[in-house]
Design a protein around this nucleic acid. Structure first.
Lengths: 236, 236
DNA sequence: CGCCCGTTTTGCGCTATCGCAAACTGTCCG
DNA sequence: CGGACAGTTTGCGATAGCGCAAAACGGGCG
């Protein structure tokens, strides 16, 4: 079991205000693991054996229906926690987590959570805020799906991804992990076909540059305009 | 400031395991208030001055877009908390809360939260579970909006309402508060017109009985079938 | 008791988006 | 270097559900 350096996590909001020795105590309970690109981290419905902190890479959390359709719940960026099932009172993971890039995580065993929370109550409050933020995002997403057209939703999704995991280039912002049309469709409640058509259109207008599992926002500002555009304002 | 009887809240999951005197200490920080039908409890964007526990009645939490469209985030039933903004790290309410029936609530001032969690850490864990459950519901809702047709979504919504706030009648289950077609549309991401058409159809088939802001599920079992029905199974 | 207003119902044309199918393409592997 | 394949593009017909408009309804209040 590798020793984990506190410097890796000390700057995270969740651990803000912790003393180095406390951090060490917390990290002592965790082990680290590496997941190669496209490998499963845990499966929806499996017993929640632990909770995770992503150190490197990118992870997709997806939910599957009984009939096999999938949606992407979220993409996890480095520094974020995931697989918190047990803290939320579940015994099984409600979604499947997959590494979309070579990824490194810290894993705490489920059993460690009650102990840690008792010892460090602020962990619970901190996690509460994290989960609260995710709840807000979910509500925003529901609002968007209820009131906006597909093009606007895709615009919002890309902007969010760019903000969370965008790499600045001189000619735009690149989303810093492999993401397919299908993935975007599953984030926005549409089909890969429609996403493809939209991106093709945007590409022609110079808004984006994209290829196989790769998207660069060339003109973020105009995409913001698109995202906020009232559907019936202005001509075609 | 009225004294609040612990027996009102002692049975709630959030307070399970609390000693009577602890409960009294917690309740001492709260005051109760009554909101008549259709009155606002707090507005989206207003400073979060407190958090709430619903004792009697029913409350609708709704989110409004900049352009004025609304969605219903959820209906709050007696025994549930709402307006937890500050516990989630927000300083303003992310939604508007309205009493849809004459309602009675307990209100804790925002400032009491840090004190209470410090004194009773299990409040944080308990709230975490509550919020976690809501997050799951949100994800389920997103999944439904992404993969199901309107009729199925309406079926699911009504079943959920019936489960949460259904009153058993000998000829079915009645949703125990006033709810309009528009409300249901805002819960399922559609229009009141479509909801009206669907309910009309169901009424003819004897699945429901409904009227002005009133819905009775006459045949819950068949509605469950509808909700689970694969869109392309069976003829029209 | 009758009026008024919010709610519900219903018709009809429209279109955004899906669904299917087929062709295309960039990458990785052998 | 040449598949083979996953991912992408694109065309085209079908349709669920929207948007608008108007009428019917039902309850509460003066």
């Amino acid at each position: 079991m590798a020793k984990v350096d506190t410097s890796l996590v000390a700057h995270l909001p969740l651990f803000a205000g912790f003393k180095t020795e406390d951090l060490e105590e917390i990290l002592r309970e965790a082990r680290s693991a590496r997941y190669p690109k496209n490998s499963a981290i845990f499966e929806q419905g499996a017993d929640a054996h632990g909770f995770f902190l992503l150190l490197h890479g990118h992870v997709r959390a997806a939910k599957t229906t009984p009939t096999g359709e999938q949606i992407v719940v979220r993409y996890v960026a480095p520094g974020e926690t995931f697989g918190l099932a047990m803290a939320l009172g579940l015994t099984q993971y409600p979604a499947t987590a997959t590494a979309v890039d070579d990824s490194v995580v810290l894993i705490w065993p489920t059993a460690a959570w009650p102990r840690l929370v008792e010892r460090f109550p602020s962990l619970a409050s901190g996690t509460l805020q994290t989960v609260g933020a995710r709840l807000q995002e979910s509500h925003t997403r529901i609002l968007e799906m209820s009131t906006q057209q597909v093009e606007q939703r895709v615009a919002h999704a890309l902007l969010r991804l760019a903000k969370q995991s965008g790499k600045k280039l001189d000619h735009g912002i690149e989303i810093d992990f492999p993401i397919s049309r299908q993935d975007i469709a599953q984030m926005t409640g549409t089909t890969l076909h429609t996403v493809s058509r939209i991106l093709s259109g945007w590409e022609q207008q110079g808004l984006v540059e994209s290829g196989r599992q790769r998207i660069i926002l060339r003109d973020p500002h105009r995409i913001v305009t698109l995202a906020e555009r009232n559907p019936d304002s202005g001509p075609a």
